[in-house]
Amino acid sequence: MARRVAFVNNKGGVGKTTTTVRLAEALAKEGKRVLVVDMDPQGNASSMLGWVWDPTQQQPTISHAIQTAADGAARTVVQPVAWDAPYAERIALAPATLDLESRMSEAGVSGAWRRLDMALDGVDDHFDYTLIDCQPSVFHLTQMALAAAHDVVIVTEADLYSVEAAKRVYEFVVQRAPKDLANPTLTVRGVVVSALAPTALQAEQRDSIRDIFGDLVWEPAIKVRTTLAEANTDALPLTDGRVAEPRAMYELLAQSFLKAVPAP
């Protein structure tokens, strides 16, 4: 089984999806085989990896696999990414669309919180890491991800509301997940500071994050860069010269990841 890592925050817009996708890219450059599971109905991770929803086609998504409620159901969902890069063959995707919202209605069904774990059973055995991009909440979809995961990475921006949300996620994982999700070994492995702007206030908040989470905070903090946002929007890998700095930041962050997250 791959080492499964859930990327979480209780607040949206903090760079969680970008971190998931760009770490997958950097890990693939390191020779790691990576599966990205999109557990956010917005489907932004899927779009960043070049997947395009076509309503005229029967395209299996992670929602279908979860609905099946069977071991290994995600096998028909996992597919190559659309990037044109030499390392892209080491990245695969279980995509999502807005239909994933429908799974929320199953939250009260007995054992429904285990359905992602069931769907991935045996499917990610030949990957080194499964990175799960969670929606900005700690409700049913995120709880399915946390029940299936071995580790958690909290992504936050350097602002008060993002940090407060990060603290809520940390408390949920530490205090409730072991019992409520029957996952006693689930561990927060890191905190990523994303979209850091060059202002005194942002620097102050970054230092506050370090004070709160201590050694869990990974380096480097990811600086806000227009070229990174453009690459995300255009569903492009970080390969050309315009994105040299963002590429280097995520390659360094991948080293922090590899040090903190146990090898499978």
Rank of each mutant, 00 (worst) to 15 (best):
I154T: 01
V173E: 00
T156A: 06
K167R: 10
T61S: 01
A229K: 11
W53L: 09
A69W: 14
R189C: 04
L27H: 00
Q59L: 05
P220L: 11
T156P: 06
L258H: 06
W83T: 03
K16P: 00
A112R: 14
D117F: 06
H64M: 05
V36Y: 04
L146Q: 15
T226D: 05
L252R: 15
D180M: 09
I222M: 12
T56V: 03
A82K: 15
V138L: 15
R103H: 01
A147R: 12
V261S: 14
A69L: 02
G50C: 08
V153H: 01
A195N: 02
L253F: 00
K11I: 00
A182W: 13
A85D: 06
Q135R: 15
N44F: 01
R210H: 12
A92G: 00
A263G: 08
V163R: 04
V123E: 14
V261I: 15
M1C: 09
V155F: 06
A147V: 14
V37S: 05
T185N: 15
A221N: 06
G111N: 10
A248I: 09
E25M: 15
D84I: 05
L201N: 01
S102E: 15
A148G: 13
T97I: 11
A200L: 15
A149V: 12
A197F: 01
A85G: 06
D125M: 07
R90I: 02
E245Q: 10
D180Y: 12
L253K: 12
L236F: 03
T18N: 12
R247T: 11
H64F: 02
L141V: 04
P220W: 05
L186F: 04
L23E: 08
Q67F: 07
V243G: 03
S102V: 04
S137P: 08
P184C: 03
L236D: 10
A69M: 06
F7I: 10
R225W: 00
A197E: 14
R103V: 10
G111E: 11
N44S: 11
C134K: 09
V37N: 03
R4S: 07
Q58W: 08
D99W: 01
L131C: 13
I91H: 08
M39D: 02
A231F: 01
S102I: 04
A24C: 04
S194D: 00
V78D: 10
L23M: 07
E157I: 00
V261Q: 14
K223G: 09
P237D: 02
L116Y: 08
V261H: 15
V243I: 10
D151Y: 15
T56S: 09
A119E: 07
S47I: 12
A74L: 10
V21L: 12
V5S: 11
D128C: 04
D54K: 04
S137L: 00
S102T: 10
V52G: 07
